[in-house]
Amino acid sequence: MPSMLPGAPWLLAHKSMLTANQPRKISLHGSDYVMWKDAAEAIHALPNACPHMGAMLSEGWCEAEGDRTSSVVCPFHALKFDPEGCTVLPGSKQKTLPLLKPLNLIIQGNLIWSYGEYEPQVPIPNVLHKIAETYYFIGHTADRSIETDLLTMLLNMHDYNHQNGTHRDLFRITDVEFHQFIDEGHQSHAFYDMPTAPYSLAEKLIKPDLFLLPSTIKAHLENHFPSLVIFHGEMPFGKAAQCHIFVPEAENRTRTYILLFGQAKHPLFKMLGNTYLNFGKVVVDQDADILGKIYPNTPQKIKLNNEVGMDWVRRNFETFPNVREPNFSR
């Protein structure tokens, strides 16, 4: 069973995660790339190893070429590589043929997708495009690499029973009341409620952000296998779509981050954007912490109720890119 699902689309970044003319390392399917955004907001990506002596291009810098486009510069010998992977050698006035093969990127608005070096097997989900049309973008958070394989990461994300364990701290979740799981092949929906233990008034006055935590967290997770989970949340002052992104960097390393979108019902909602981003970061940090405390090869001798989301992940992993019929709702 392939561990990184070749042929799936991966959301490498939102344009806001890149600073103009500042290179950044991006990893996918065991390969490293340097990605940068030029002054015209065009996105470029090349293999990260300089073809001269292997220096990391992401540790270099960018130089503008004219008013709009730019090249990435190797930090070792200052060789400049344009977006096509060509350079001009010292003492020469002519560009070389491409020495680096650009990573194929698919840009949809502010979203940067890629299939890596593989032929597409499943389409890019259009749900984020729809969200961007009706929600405003709040920001990104919790961008980190975790030393775990993609399957383990996704099983954790779809383990609805772990909320009152892993996420008890801060959120004080006391129970998980599971309602429904709708299986639509590579798409699914999960609905459940999570009652929380209340904070005292004194605790809230010390940390006012706690006033924003509801007595019961009502969860609707919209899942797009394998790279995207959207938590749809209703807050007192608006609605949020908290989008959890997953990227297989290597066999045993998976990157995750959050893109947060909102619909304000009250002006106060927009002022609270950073608070909601911080809540999302806490969730990812808690998940990363528990994933570092698991013996991965332990036989599972106990099966809890409502592991249907985990079953959905395993089934799609086993049959990817095909979908095993029949689909069902329960």
Rank of each mutant, 00 (worst) to 15 (best):
K218V: 10
H220S: 02
E222N: 11
F225E: 06
S227D: 02
S227N: 13
L228R: 14
V229S: 14
I230G: 05
I230E: 05
G233Y: 03
E234G: 00
M235A: 12
P236M: 01
F237H: 12
G238Q: 12
K239F: 03
K239L: 12
A241Q: 12
Q242N: 15
Q242R: 10
C243Y: 10
H244K: 13
I245W: 11
V247A: 04
V247Q: 07
V247P: 05
E249K: 12
A250F: 02
A250K: 06
N252Y: 04
Y257A: 05
Y257F: 15
I258Y: 07
F261D: 02
G262K: 10
K265L: 13
H266Y: 09
P267Y: 02
L268A: 08
F269K: 00
L272N: 00
T275Y: 09
T275P: 00
T275E: 04
Y276V: 04
Y276L: 12
N278Y: 10
G280D: 07
G280F: 02
G280M: 02
V283R: 00
V283I: 15
Q286P: 01
D287C: 04
A288G: 06
D289E: 13
I290Q: 11
L291F: 04
G292M: 08
K293D: 13
K293F: 07
I294S: 03
I294R: 08
Y295V: 15
P296A: 05
N297P: 01
T298R: 14
P299G: 07
Q300R: 11
I302H: 07
L304G: 03
L304D: 02
L304K: 08
N306E: 04
N306V: 00
N306D: 10
V308I: 13
D311S: 05
V313I: 15
V313P: 10
R314M: 07
R315Q: 10
N316I: 03
E318G: 09
